[in-house]
Amino acid sequence: MADVKLIIGNKRYSSWSLRGWLAMKLSGMTFEEVVVPLYRADSHTALKAANPDAPPKVPSLKVGENAIWDTLAICEYLAEQCPTANLWPEDVFARARARSVVAEMHSSFMALREHVPMDFSKRLPYAGLPDEVEADIARICEVWRECRSLYSEQGPYLFGKISLADVFYAPVLVRFYSRSVPLDETCQAYFDTLWALPEFIKWRQTAEKEEWFITSYDPD
């Protein structure tokens, strides 16, 4: 197979990079990880050098001379190329629901993204959040509860077995953790399950050791 490179940004901050990296790990595909620090004067140039045919954004995937960008496109490519990894649920309607909640995460929750950026270096006491952020949190928790209600007998993840749905909601854990967002029993159990995923732990440990800091991400 052609050489595969995943270009990602700072592990401390880049939520889309985390999604792409987790998907790669769960797929079992062998790849080289290329980290490009973001929001620096040379970031654009470095991203174009790493994957010339992709936009200067993260994550992007370089497969030989071919470029794939946008996390969702990367995930669909992996699902096609690594069918035995079962990145989507096997049941047709579970798979459709999984794609629905992934698409919702891909296109929604802008208030949460704006006010609570992913930052592995932050842990603040819960002090309430703007109404629009609380609405996003409520909807995410509703998604989690609905999925767990439907698929809890098949395993501890959103659709029982781990899938791309969990990949897409993984950065939310960091956002919730950084602001000590209170969760009900069902959502806390799911949070704890995904937080303990070995691949997530590995990313988290690396992120916490990064020496690159972006002051604009400081919520204080």
Rank of each mutant, 00 (worst) to 15 (best):
L6Y: 06
L6F: 12
I7Y: 02
G9M: 06
K11M: 14
R19T: 06
G20L: 10
A23F: 03
A23W: 01
M24G: 00
K25H: 05
M29G: 01
T30H: 11
T30K: 15
F31Y: 14
V35N: 03
V35K: 12
Y39T: 02
A41G: 04
A41F: 08
D42T: 13
D42S: 08
D42L: 02
L47T: 06
K48E: 13
A49N: 05
N51D: 14
N51Y: 04
P52A: 13
D53N: 14
P56G: 07
V63K: 04
V63A: 06
N66F: 12
N66T: 13
I68K: 00
D70P: 05
A73H: 14
I74A: 11
I74Y: 10
C75H: 02
E76S: 04
E80Q: 13
Q81F: 02
A85T: 09
N86L: 11
N86S: 11
E90G: 07
E90F: 01
D91W: 06
D91Q: 10
D91K: 08
F93Y: 13
R97F: 07
A98L: 08
A98S: 14
R99P: 03
V101Y: 05
V102H: 03
H106Y: 03
M110D: 10
A111T: 05
E114A: 15
E114F: 09
D119R: 13
R123S: 14
A127V: 05
A127P: 01
L129M: 12
L129S: 10
P130R: 06
P130I: 07
D131K: 12
A135C: 03
D136H: 06
A138E: 14
R139Y: 12
I140A: 13
C141K: 08
C141H: 09
V143R: 11
R148T: 08
L150V: 05
E153T: 11
P156R: 10
P156G: 06
P156Y: 04
L158D: 04
L158N: 06
F159Q: 05
G160Y: 06
L164E: 04
A165C: 04
A170E: 01
V174I: 15
V174E: 00
S180L: 02
L183H: 09
L183R: 01
D184K: 05
C187K: 01
A189Y: 03
Y190Q: 10
L194M: 08
W195N: 07
P198A: 11
E199R: 08
W203A: 03
R204M: 13
T206E: 14
S216G: 07
D220Y: 14
